[in-house]
């Protein structure tokens, strides 16, 4: 397995892995903020929203210039998957900006 191959395989799941971590982060911050009455709860949530989107945006821009058969096919699937992960991040975490956090 060459380095390019490995890169394509990792990229295939990288976007959604980042999305999962973002999900856990935001859900955790929401719960902690309510449990301990954080004063700047909303600001923290919005900051976390932006922080989460940064790696997703970065990943969705990476195009592997892969040579050869397995890597090139997977690289294209990876690009789709990572763009989907960015879209999923933007949409699923958007409520962090407005929805009632503790009721």
């Amino acid at each position: 397995m060459s380095a390019g191959d490995r890169r394509a395989l990792i990229l295939l799941i990288a976007g959604f892995t980042a999305w999962s971590f973002g999900f856990v982060l935001l859900y955790g911050l929401q719960a902690l903020g309510c449990a301990y009455d954080w004063p700047a709860h909303r600001a923290i949530l919005i900051a976390a929203y932006i922080v989460t989107l940064a790696p997703l945006a970065w990943l969705s821009l990476i195009k592997v210039r892969a040579e050869g058969e397995p890597a090139s096919v997977l690289a294209l699937s990876a690009l789709w998957a990572n763009r989907a992960a960015l879209a999923a991040g933007v949409l699923t975490f958007f409520p962090a900006t407005f929805a009632s956090a503790c009721i």
Binding site: C34, A88, T92, A101
Partner: peptide, 28 residues
């Protein structure tokens, strides 16, 4: 392939929709 991967991950972010009435805050 991309759709399968997306589904595999997204499906782990849905579980609370079985628990919408247990009194979890609206944001969650």
């Amino acid at each position: 392939i991309a759709a399968i991967v997306a589904m595999g991950f997204l499906s782990f972010g849905l579980w609370v929709h079985h628990m919408f009435t247990v009194g979890i805050p609206h944001l969650a």
